[in-house]
């Protein structure tokens, strides 16, 4: 069983090819990090997989009707928009719209999502007046409240302090451990190395590598895709990854 099946997906925008023939599956229990340099097309790949932009090839999510897709996958875009000064609780409750809203199960999902993202103290605050990191956590909680088998998020940890970066990654890891699937785009390779069960490396207009972190974050691939060297070691405290220098 797979939660997302992408087959030979190719996207060209305004005559420029972004990537071609990308194929991968995501199964329950997987916590997948999508990595790649700026402009590699990580956001475009996720939006195409969801069917939000046109693409050649197949994606199991894009084939669903809009309402079925909304119950299969939650999507947190990179642009953290909150258009109106609603409370954090009302913001998180928006995640229940695809399910109808207003039922006891909806309330339970909202409470659980607020709890998971440690937002209980902020829930009556106005979302637009929170700091950027707090807003990001509220928007992650919104996506969690959607309670979909697959969760997709674009740079969800950007702008969070270290403690919240780690705890957010742990929330995603817990979801995966409980049988959901998670697909995140990430720039922080250290977080990716420590928490993800699998990495997808998008570079050079294609999927350059797909596998567990230690198989993807190799000196060769890092040099090709990111033009960097890095220190990557297995320690008693788990894997440690630190970028070191730029290869010119």
């Amino acid at each position: 069983m797979t939660l997302l099946s992408v087959d030979n997906l190719s996207v060209s925008l305004r005559g420029r090819e972004i990537f071609r023939d990308v194929s991968f599956d995501i199964a329950p229990g997987e916590f997948v990090g999508l990595i790649g340099p700026n402009g590699a097309g990580k956001t475009t790949l996720m939006r195409a997989a969801l069917g939000l932009i046109g693409a050649a090839g197949q994606s199991s999510l894009a084939a669903l009707s809009a309402s079925d897709r909304a119950r299969q996958a939650a999507w947190m875009p990179q642009a953290r928009e909150i258009a109106w000064p609603v409370t954090v609780e009302a913001l998180v409750a928006l995640g229940r719209l695809p399910h109808g809203g207003g039922r006891p199960a909806d309330h339970a999902a909202i409470v659980a999502a607020i709890e998971r993202m440690a937002l209980a103290e902020l829930q009556q605050r106005t979302a637009t007046r929170l700091s950027g990191g707090e807003q990001a956590r509220a928007l992650i909680a919104r996506a969690l409240a959607q309670e979909t088998p697959l969760l997709m998020a674009d740079e969800p940890t950007a702008g969070l302090d270290p403690a919240h970066q780690i705890s957010t990654m742990e929330v995603f890891a817990d979801l995966a451990a409980a049988g959901q699937g998670v697909l995140l785009s990430l720039h922080d390779l250290g977080l990716a190395a420590r928490h993800c069960t699998r990495l997808l490396l998008l570079a050079e207009g294609r999927l350059l590598a797909d596998g567990p972190p230690e198989a993807v974050l190799t000196p060769d691939l890092l040099a090709r895709a990111f033009h960097i060297t890095a220190h990557h070691a297995q320690t008693p405290d788990g894997p440690v990854f630190q970028p070191l220098s730029v290869i010119r």
Binding site: L50, L52, A66, A74, W75, P77, E81, L91, L139, R142
Partner: peptide, 9 residues
């Protein structure tokens, strides 16, 4: 309220 991309999803 969450923007067009999130609303569409």
């Amino acid at each position: 309220t969450l923007g067009e991309d999130a609303a569409e999803s």
